[in-house]
């Protein structure tokens, strides 16, 4: 995993914008319509989801190599 996700689910309204614009299909909506990280291993930390989230509910940080190795 090269990236770290922070989800503020109380803000997520399940609009699906992050899911649609993720170039690697990392994200999905769960049964309750909130976002979850379905395929973290595919994430390239491009930040498209965070960029366009209208509710400031998803944050992606690129992990430094050492931190990524530890995981």
């Amino acid at each position: 995993m090269k990236s770290e996700f922070t989800l503020k689910l109380d803000r997520c309204k399940g609009c699906g914008i992050c899911v649609a614009f993720c170039p690697k299909q990392v994200l999905a909506l769960d049964t309750l319509g909130k976002v979850y990280v379905a395929h973290p291993e595919n994430c390239i930390a491009c930040g498209q989801c965070e960029l366009r989230c209208p509710d400031y509910a998803i944050f992606v940080d690129k992990l430094k190599q050492e931190a990524a190795d530890k995981k």
């Binding site: 803000r11 309204k13 399940g14 609009c15 914008i17 989230c53 209208p54 509710d55 400031y56």
Partner: peptide, 22 residues
Amino acid sequence: YEKFFRQNRLPHLWCPGCGNGI
């Protein structure tokens, strides 16, 4: 940028998917 938001007012009332938040 989060410091410029009134955190206790979030989440905002705009509809799911509304572009205003962006």
